[in-house]
């Protein structure tokens, strides 16, 4: 196995464990925003879509598939982040009334 692949596997495992640690600390109060945020993050595949679409030797097929992929992942990113922010704006703490 080449070292490059080995390194990728290390990165994957470490990031996975980091994810488990981080998510366990998220309060259940925010589980829905967490889901829509990670949903937006999963659209990181936009990177692959851009690389395919913009490649100098791209064929017509890969351009078409690529542009649809860029569109879809951008929808995912934009909708994911905006809805998360829209939700979080609604979470308010009790205003302590001076009585």
């Amino acid at each position: 196995m080449s070292t490059e692949i080995e390194l990728s596997i290390y990165v994957f495992l470490l990031a996975g464990f980091l994810g488990l640690e981080l998510v366990q600390r998220v309060s259940p109060l925010l589980h829905t925003p967490l889901m829509s945020l990670t949903n937006a993050i999963s659209a990181i595949s936009v990177v692959g879509a851009i690389l395919i679409t913009g490649a100098g030797d791209a064929t017509m097929l890969s351009k078409v598939l690529g542009v649809v992929a860029v569109t879809c992942s951008t929808i995912n990113i934009v909708a994911g982040f905006l809805i998360t922010d829209r939700m979080l704006k609604m979470f308010k703490k009790e205003k302590k009334e001076a009585k």
């Binding site: 990728s8 990165v11 994957f12 495992l13 990031a15 996975g16 464990f17 980091l18 994810g19 488990l20 981080l22 998510v23 366990q24 589980h31 967490l34 889901m35 990670t38 949903n39 993050i41 999963s42 990181i44 595949s45 990177v47 692959g48």
Partner: peptide
């Protein structure tokens, strides 16, 4: 992509 994907996979799994 590996880092973001792994974080996301872990999150969905825990939930």
């Amino acid at each position: 992509l590996i880092i973001a994907g792994a974080l996301n996979a872990a999150s969905g799994f825990i939930l």
